[in-house]
Nucleic acid binder design. Structure first.
Length: 288
DNA sequence: CTCATTTGACCTGA
DNA sequence: TCAGGTCAAATGAG
């Protein structure tokens, strides 16, 4: 049995394989001749990365399972229910909370966030930014996160997540699809998300401005007709199958992993994955 | 005009 | 009383 680290790497590699296929398809839409399944490819990418995140977010059973110095999960109990005006969540005492330390701010983590506050923290030289899910009102989603720079040199940004996303994920998928729409320059897309509407580097909170404007994002998608392009769902599974076969034929390719990735990650998965049964049937062919 | 961000005020657990 | 989390009015961008 592969270690969690290996599983995660396999998941990421698989996602990368799908992404490359999708990129080629976007570069040469007519190359394959037959109907496209770009939307399904995108789904596979998201699902693969979701699974990788779930694996990496799960509490390791041993120290050897710890995959990185820069990512960790709090080894403590879950937060209380809905947020109140005052902190009810003890971040040191929650298993549903998890944090991610990264040398860069997390520009896009699959969800859309709205900033609702910023505070100077006594123990730190840096301010802490507070975000909640953009669908907090629409879907009564209680997910929140804190973002804070904890080290200067090298820079380390700590993002602490609280609660579960109860919002629909379709919007988030759309954002992902949009992020990958430019096959020529992926970095360009990333930067659009990264810096939003301004590039004010004077303020830490702005340089960390990875929160997306939902409306802005959807408008762009609509304007560029990307939705139509990505929703060319057909009954033809051949393309996804090709990706799988291509990946499995590679020396290190053994993804998709088994379903025994642990119940602890199930909640996180359910947040990111799709509720379309058809897509699951398709994915199950090679996922579980 | 609409909406997201900013920021000072307010609230509350420790 | 303090520190940290949230609210909400003000502000600015599109």
């Amino acid at each position: 049995m592969n270690s969690p680290h290996e599983k995660a790497v396999q998941a990421i590699r698989y996602g990368h394989s799908c992404a490359m296929r999708l990129k080629r398809r976007l570069n040469h839409p007519m190359a394959d001749g037959g109907p496209l399944s770009s939307y399904d490819l995108a789904k596979s990418i998201v699902e693969s990365f979701s699974n990788a995140i779930s694996i990496l977010s799960a509490k390791p059973e041993t120290e050897d399972d710890q995959f990185s110095d820069l990512s960790s999960r709090d080894s403590s109990p879950p937060p209380q229910g809905s947020p109140s005006k005052k902190r009810k969540i003890d971040s040191t005492n929650s298993s549903e909370n998890w944090r991610d330390d990264s040398p860069d701010p997390i520009y896009y983590d699959g969800y859309l966030w709205r900033k609702y506050g910023q505070k100077s923290i006594k123990k730190s030289n840096h301010q802490r930014s507070y975000y909640r899910c953009s669908y907090n009102k629409d879907h009564n989603c209680g997910a929140r996160k804190h973002e804070q720079k904890i080290k200067d040199n090298p820079p380390v940004y700590r993002t602490t997540y609280f609660g579960h996303h109860t919002c629909k994920t379709e919007h988030n998928l759309d954002a992902i699809l949009f992020a990958g729409q430019d096959p020529v320059d992926d970095l360009k897309s990333t930067q659009m998300i990264r810096f939003g509407k301004d590039q004010d580097h004077e303020k830490e909170t702005r340089s960390n401005g990875f929160s997306l404007s939902v409306k802005h994002e959807e408008d762009i998608i609509r304007e560029q007709g990307m939705m139509d392009q990505y929703r060319e769902i057909t009954s033809n599974d051949q393309d996804c199958q090709d990706v799988i076969e291509e990946y499995l034929s590679s020396p290190s390719g053994s993804y998709p992993p088994s379903s025994s990735s642990g119940s602890e990650s199930a909640d996180f998965n359910s947040d990111l994955l799709f509720d379309n049964p058809d897509s699951w049937d398709r994915y199950d062919q090679f996922y579980f």
